[in-house]
Amino acid sequence: MKIQLWSIGKENDAYIRDGIAVFQKRLQHYTDFELKLIPTVKQAASLSVPELKKAEAKMIMDMLQPQDYLLALDEHGKMHTTLQLADFLQQRANAGTRQLIILIGGAYGIDNSLLERAQLKMSLSPLTFPHQLVRLIMTEQIYRAYTVLNREKYHHQ
């Protein structure tokens, strides 16, 4: 199964980029993983928030393939433990999912049309994090989930 972490926004700061690189390298042992940064919509500042979210949703929908499994990170989604995330990844692999897309929306979140397309909506926390940090957190959590599945010592239970 290929896992892609899609995120709308600017390039990562050096410390975030370095942290993601560490976990991307480690993930190579378990799965095909890619971070895909999606540039913000052109003339975003001239759009209202609903218009911006719709434009972002259209851009994402155009990139998705019909068979892609979409997990949307959303503040109203269900929270999962690391063990539940590991179980979810195993279930997706067992179900024959070819590509899992984990989406971090834009600055104002994800448009409802895209949330309706998502097969799973997940929240990381009731706290608000910068999107760059969420990229690092998700990359680390995917790595951690794979170490759980492989009964390695990284995750302490």
Rank of each mutant, 00 (worst) to 15 (best):
Q65P: 00
L27N: 04
R26Q: 02
K42S: 15
Q90K: 13
I110T: 14
M63T: 14
Y108H: 15
D87A: 11
A57F: 10
Q84P: 07
A44Q: 00
F88A: 11
I38E: 03
Y69H: 11
D68V: 09
T82M: 13
K53A: 08
G19P: 04
G9T: 03
I101F: 14
R92E: 15
D111Y: 12
F129N: 05
I20Q: 02
N150I: 00
K58Y: 00
N112G: 14
A72H: 07
R92C: 09
L103G: 08
T31S: 13
L37G: 02
M138S: 04
G106C: 03
I38W: 07
S46N: 14
D18P: 00
L149Q: 04
L124H: 09
N112T: 11
V49F: 11
I8C: 12
A21Y: 04
G19N: 10
A118D: 02
R144M: 12
T147Q: 05
A45Y: 11
A145H: 03
K53Y: 02
R144A: 12
A86M: 00
E140C: 07
H76V: 01
H156A: 10
L89E: 03
K78I: 00
D13I: 00
L133F: 02
P126Y: 09
A95K: 03
I142K: 03
L115G: 03
Y69F: 09
M59R: 13
H76W: 05
H76Y: 15
T81S: 13
I60H: 06
Y146T: 08
A86Y: 03
Y30R: 09
A72M: 01
S113C: 11
Q24N: 06
Q99P: 10
Y154K: 10
H155W: 07
F88W: 11
T147K: 12
L52T: 04
L100H: 05
Q67F: 04
W6Y: 12
K2S: 15
Q157L: 15
E51F: 04
R135T: 01
Q91D: 10
D87S: 13
K25F: 06
Y15S: 06
A145Q: 01
V148K: 10
I102W: 06
L71C: 15
D18H: 01
L100Q: 09
S46C: 02
Q157I: 11
E75A: 06
G106R: 09
K153G: 13
Q24M: 04
Y108V: 06
L103E: 05
T31H: 13
T139C: 11
H131N: 01
Y146W: 14
K121M: 11
T139A: 12
A86E: 02
I16A: 01
Q91V: 06
K10E: 09
T128D: 15
F88T: 10
M59W: 08
A95P: 01
F129V: 04
V41L: 04
T128G: 14
T40K: 08
